[in-house]
Design a protein around this nucleic acid. Structure first.
Lengths: 196, 196
DNA sequence: TACCGAACCGGATTGACAATCCGCTTCGGG
DNA sequence: CCCGAAGCGGATTGTCAATCCGGTTCGGTA
């Protein structure tokens, strides 16, 4: 499923992908096969053959961003101060989502058995990296202990959602992220449970 | 648009609404007019007449929850301790969304000129109540000053989104909400700006 | 009660879009 | 150069959205 054997097939796949990317960039996330086929100058069948599903198309579109995020995560892990590592990781997770709506949709979904193997692998690697970064931070006492890496993924998808609502995808991202980061400290005020 | 003049019209409207509510309760948020008409035992035309739009239907479905939330907000405002007021308000905003997906969708959207007057009014009142509650809290120093009531609405829609992702809409809601509430304090650690 | 115009009903119909399937074309290894 | 496999395209079928109008029902009035 990565790259077709025949040259013309590869060419077509690229054209479709480019067209789809263009559509997303222009704010159209619907990714309708018929539409893309017409714009790409291919038959509908061709689009369906390469990407049997909207989700398949999304995942292909998100691949680059996902890979870039893995790099971000690795550099977060490499960082000496665990608190900063967490901040780098989460900020990257937010930024990448805002920059690439296709990626945002992919990462917000739960892993599925029919996802393409590449996406599944990347997802797994991200999970491991995140767990490592978070473990360090918890050990260092910079992070409340009751949140898993999936919780944080969910929360950051939530923040991305919050930023997308309303107009002006401006500095709100920073503001919202700061709120979240502050909330991640181990129960500020009193050490264990601060219930009113 | 509230209630039709003729008795049969009112009856039909109620039947459609009840059917739609049932569909949503069963997890189907698509609210397809044809489908609802069939299940409600009316013609499609009838459904379209009463609710010209999916959004109109959503808003009608959300009305009760929205009204209940206004009560919540009033009681939050009535509370003596501003910090607790905020917590009550935000917890209600989250809980109501999780309990009523139709309401969640309505409140996540920005106000539109073609929204029904009732919804617009409720939205405005909620805005005023929230602003009051937040102002009190800011004056009392319990709340960071750089967040408007819209920011908080956005953030809580984000948290609701985060909770909906993944399975088990269980205790995650509490956990996520606590993180947010902690993050809302005026820059814990140092008073003004704590940028590492 | 009987009448009548307005309000309402229903579903046939038109149109947009999803997804498949198969006869034809093109590729590229031998 | 040949030929089987791989790929192509779009006609076609099915699903659903949305409208429109001839027929029906309501309820105010005399």
């Amino acid at each position: 499923m990565t790259t077709p054997r025949r040259a013309d097939a590869a060419r077509n796949r690229d054209r479709v992908l480019a067209t789809a990317r263009l559509a997303v960039a222009s704010g159209d996330l619907s990714l309708q096969h018929n539409d893309i086929a017409r714009r790409a100058g291919t038959g509908v069948g061709t689009v369906y053959r390469h990407f049997p599903t909207r989700r398949a198309l999304l995942e292909a579109l998100a691949e680059d961003t996902f890979t870039a995020l893995l790099d971000d995560a690795r550099s977060a892990r490499r960082h000496d101060d665990p608190g900063t590592g967490v901040e780098i990781l989460l900020r990257a997770l937010l930024t990448r989502q805002l920059a690439d709506p296709a990626f945002a949709e992919v990462i917000a979904g739960e892993p599925e058995q029919d996802a393409d193997p590449g996406t599944t692998a990347r997802r797994a690697e991200l999970g491991e990296l995140a767990r490592a970064v978070l473990d360090d931070a918890r050990r260092a006492g910079t992070l409340r202990p009751d949140l898993t890496e999936d919780d944080l993924r969910h929360l950051l998808c939530g923040v991305a959602f919050a930023v997308r609502i309303g107009d002006g995808p401006d500095e709100r991202a920073d503001r919202y992220l700061r709120v979240l980061l502050d909330g991640l400290r181990p129960t500020p005020g009193n050490p264990v449970d601060r219930r009113r």
